[in-house]
Design a protein around this nucleic acid. Structure first.
Length: 277
DNA sequence: AAACAGGCCTAAA
DNA sequence: TTTAGGCCTGTT
């Protein structure tokens, strides 16, 4: 992989980065494609467009922002061919990881991940995205990007000052108090995401599990997508089906995949959802 | 119309 | 420790 810097864009050659798979594999909710397949997304106070052109991935960002923000966000320093090799423990995982070639696990904002996956419970992707966008429009900060108005993800402090009734506009139902509760814990310091992300995986999972509205599955998503803890292995209904079919009931991901369990989960999940066997 | 969707909580065995 | 039912809402 190497980078070619322009004034307002960066070209990534030999990227091992497929934007469609990366944005549609279920890890994130705020990247949306326009009619030409160009994705626009927001991370913190930054926004970018991402597209593919003649075998290269392009990001609408000059060198400085690319090197300080997007390089890290897109996990571009990791060698994913080694990851795929490590998780290819058998024929099934070889197919799954090949199918998911180009997926990169994003280094997302921790609070946004907490909030997003609380919302995700017993919910479908279109609705999750709708709720999150409404939340950003209602409580985030507006800014202009490429002729469009975009919104930042609202801070925990901002949400902490609200009451559950204030979230009625989001149509997120019973998840509203979970969101407020998590925001307040972060705002008052009783839940320190930075500190959690420095702990070992099991300790972080345990702490997150104390929060109301965060169970085993959501906690695993948070440490994987928010903290880059790859021992995590979120198991939802799709994963249950895939595991039952290929590995049986008492399956221990960390003993099988070790420090690559989180990547293995993502390949398996994406493959299972595709309907391939 | 009734069930279901990328779970979690609580009550009850 | 495991299991059933309810939960907001939107979609089929």
């Amino acid at each position: 992989m190497h980078f070619i810097y322009g004034q307002n864009q960066t070209e990534i050659r030999d990227a091992d980065f497929d934007p469609v798979k990366t944005f549609e594999c279920g890890q994130c909710f705020r990247w949306n494609a326009d009619a030409d397949g160009v994705y626009t997304g927001v991370f913190g106070k930054h926004a970018a467009r991402v597209w593919v052109e003649s075998d290269s991935v392009f990001i609408s960002s000059g060198r400085e922002e690319f090197e300080t923000v997007w390089m890290d966000y897109f996990d571009l320093t990791r060698d994913y061919s080694k990851v795929r090799e490590a998780v290819s423990i058998d024929d099934y995982m070889r197919r799954a990881s090949e199918y998911g070639r180009g997926i990169r696990l994003l280094r997302q904002d921790k609070w946004e991940v907490v909030c997003s996956f609380i919302i995700s419970q017993c919910n479908n992707i279109p609705r999750i995205k709708k709720i999150i966008e409404k939340m950003c429009e209602s409580f985030g900060e507006a800014f202009e990007f490429n002729g469009k108005t975009l919104y930042t993800f609202p801070s925990a402090d901002k949400i902490a000052a609200l009451e559950p009734e204030d979230l009625v506009v989001l149509r997120c139902g019973y998840r509203a108090p979970y969101i407020i509760n998590a925001a307040r814990a972060i705002a008052d310091g009783s839940l320190n995401l930075e500190a959690l992300s420095e702990m070992d995986c099991n300790a972080a999972l345990k702490e997150l599990g104390k929060m109301s509205g965060i169970g085993v599955k959501v906690a695993n998503c948070i440490v994987l997508f928010g903290f880059q803890m790859f021992c995590a292995f979120p198991v939802d209904v799709w994963m249950k089906r895939a595991l039952a079919e290929h590995y049986g009931k008492d399956f221990n991901p960390s003993s099988v995949f070790g420090e690559y369990a989180g990547f293995a989960q993502q390949y398996m999940f994406y493959y299972a959802r595709s309907g391939e066997k």
